[in-house]
């Protein structure tokens, strides 16, 4: 198959890429669009380091051929927030020690933000379940759970 043209709305911006239909969304984001925040950990959909939102659903971008993402809205860690305007989960990960080496962090943050959109008040069991597709080797997950719990609280406070 030859190179084809695809359009994606990435973090709210329309992007066009010319690539092979079976190119992984992960590679399109990292190599074509230079959004290297999304990481590759295993390349087989086990670790979740490459998690992004595709039309609002949490997916492993290493398993998505770009042809499947044509016309889709994609959200990556870069779209969550940056510097002075951190997303509540980013700030909570920072404060609670949810990020250590940082390699699972982008995917873990996207999964956390997705969880909170689907369920604004998850209990601990729901947090554990919501993040079970994202492996972390550094933290033992405790700081991450605490961060998501804190993000729930801080989002509530901001709305109040």
């Amino acid at each position: 198959m030859s190179v084809q043209h695809y359009s994606l709305v990435v973090n709210g911006e329309l992007k066009r890429v010319a690539t092979h239909p079976m190119a992984r969304l992960l590679d399109v984001l990292r190599c074509d669009l230079l959004l290297t925040g999304t990481k590759e950990g295993c390349g087989e959909g086990e670790c979740g380091a490459c998690s992004v939102l595709l039309n609002g659903e949490l997916v492993n971008s290493c398993l998505i051929p770009v042809a499947q993402a044509d016309g889709a809205e994609i959200e990556t860690v870069e779209g969550l927030g940056a510097n002075e305007q951190l997303h509540a989960v980013q700030r909570a990960f920072l404060e609670c020690g949810g990020a250590q080496c940082g390699m699972c962090t982008p995917g873990m943050l996207v999964a956390s933000a997705h969880l909170l959109r689907k369920n604004p008040h998850p209990d601990l069991a729901a947090i554990r379940e919501g993040l079970n597709g994202n492996l972390c080797r550094c933290t033992g997950y405790m700081r991450i759970f605490e961060a998501v719990e804190r993000a729930v609280t801080s989002v509530g406070e901001e709305r109040a």
Binding site: T76, E78, A82, N83, L86, Q90, L94, A99, G102, T105
Partner: peptide
């Protein structure tokens, strides 16, 4: 930490 949580 900020660079890590921003994907930078």
């Amino acid at each position: 930490g900020v660079a890590k949580v921003c994907g930078r």
